[in-house]
Design a protein around this nucleic acid. Sequence first.
DNA 1: ACTTTTCGTTGTAGCGCTACAATTTTAGGA
DNA 2: TCCTAAAATTGTAGCGCTACAACGAAAAGT
Lengths: 337, 337
Amino acid sequence: MPDATDSRQPRKLTMQDVARAAGVSPMTVSNCFRYPERVQEKTRTQVLKVAAELGYVPNLSAGLLAAGTSRVIGAVLPSMRNSSFYRYTAGLREAAAERGYAVITMIAETPAEELSAVQTLLGLRVAGLALIAGPHARELKRMVELSSTPVVEAWAGEDAIGRGVGYDVGAASAELTRHLIAQGRRRIGFVDVAGGGGMRYSMRLPAFRREMFSAGLSDDLVMTVRAADGFGAGAQIIDGFLARDRRIDAVLCPTDVVAAGAIFECNRRGLAVPGEIAVAGWGDYDIGRQITPTLTTVAPFSDAIGRGAVSMLLDGGSGRGAEPLRTAFNVLPREST
Amino acid sequence: MPDATDSRQPRKLTMQDVARAAGVSPMTVSNCFRYPERVQEKTRTQVLKVAAELGYVPNLSAGLLAAGTSRVIGAVLPSMRNSSFYRYTAGLREAAAERGYAVITMIAETPAEELSAVQTLLGLRVAGLALIAGPHARELKRMVELSSTPVVEAWAGEDAIGRGVGYDVGAASAELTRHLIAQGRRRIGFVDVAGGGGMRYSMRLPAFRREMFSAGLSDDLVMTVRAADGFGAGAQIIDGFLARDRRIDAVLCPTDVVAAGAIFECNRRGLAVPGEIAVAGWGDYDIGRQITPTLTTVAPFSDAIGRGAVSMLLDGGSGRGAEPLRTAFNVLPREST
DNA sequence: ACTTTTCGTTGTAGCGCTACAATTTTAGGA
DNA sequence: TCCTAAAATTGTAGCGCTACAACGAAAAGT
């Protein structure tokens, strides 16, 4: 049986194989990938060519084990449904790519899932971990602290796990409230959001109350929805507020999607927006630009949050408990107010 | 200087440390994490407790290197903006979790980014790789073939990289077309989509043409938009079709978002939907359920695609070039047609 | 020509873990 | 009580790579 062992199952390709094929030592191959400038142009070109022909892809795990560092950043997201997070990850990816890092993300919809995602990422020994503010599992904080991996928490305030990065939600809420007051609105309803994501926005309501108080207006018109309701919350909101005060003249919604739902409901009822009632959203989602009337909203520049996260992770130094990085926001007045 | 070395920088914790602290051998610790059933209940509880106290997280890279396999699946997504992909990843995660696997995802918006994401994932030696159909870099196919990592391509047809999994887009398109014809529509416009994602839906138009031909109707009313246009394409579509045929009585849109844009435009113009013109979307997005009138659409059950992808990856065997796995779809007639 | 500097390349050792076989302990019969 | 089978635990070797120090070979001084 001459050919018995010849059934060429493409045995796993190692750096050794590439080295042999290129007639250099394994270390030279390693250097070609990791520190190209250490290798003479000619040698490098040759080695890389051979590697490509063979279809060699360096084993990052082995490299990590040997070197103790990887060039991968891990990000955990609570969901992907929302365009703020989309831009956030885009910011992460751009900033990471500029420094030669890759970003891997894991979705986690519950604190328990988040914990297990963090375990996986820590197990992979990522160079940095980017979390999103929200309710966390109790063990999470201790776990990341013990890991000595740099961690940032996006959309976080003072009490962040790791370092915080985000815009000043309270200031944005205050500015948006002042905008409505300046437009002559007097009976302003505020929609709060309960549950997970709510944590990221807990400063909205107090800031609203403060501004209303300063202007001598009532801050009673507050109701709570679950963010998950999306468009569907619109009817509920308009119903609820009208039942409490027929003459309500403005509504502050927790997201543009909820605000769009509210506007759809106003249309159905023949309530003129912004003639009879103004509606403001939050987050600068696509939909806010497309509906009629266009939606007044707060632009969070989420990509800047992502970029900031990467820079804190990678050059953040040992800033234990350093104060959060504040990114910019912008109140965008449009047709709906 | 007694305390010089006492500045306790929490030196990296290894399995060794846990073993020592728990009074067992490293192998027992390893087994506790990997094959819990091999370890006596009592021992395992004790070891796990010690590990948790110490904040030990096993180094997956080292484990992978030693064992040659990891329990991580890599997924590459072209974007996160769209709720089909959201449900797809949810399906991936559920099915993977049931089998004790984790899913890490990377976003790639261009073929070049996709290639580099695949390199990273292959470098991590993931247990399987889930790709999305679309334009790929030329080197991609060879790279994944050489890697001998199981690969699936979701939304793919016959010519998939690795194995394909997805629903029969042509059949769905035909069924939706027949639905409109059965409703008495005769002058039906078809909106095609150009660019990246278009690839995933290239079977829509031929199927539409076939059905129109069978019914003895004209299939001339075809226009193309870029998917990226989102809501904005609505006006363009309605404008364009009316300019070509004032009596057009139905429009088939490439996504629910585009269809919603078209409905908004019809509302602005006072064109009754479905009275004067029927509008159908594609993809069963949230918005289609929320607008008035609710939108007729095709539900792709994207989570089933994700689940199917995992099962092909993990029990797919050596099915080189096996035929694609076909998942279900459903035409959902609602108010807009 | 001979030393010094600089650059490019190469062995060696070991990162933290797990497969596997060997070993010890425990349970089950006779 | 002793013997065998089964279960639980443990050494050893090595996965593929990179840090580091050592080395050889050109380049630059003297």
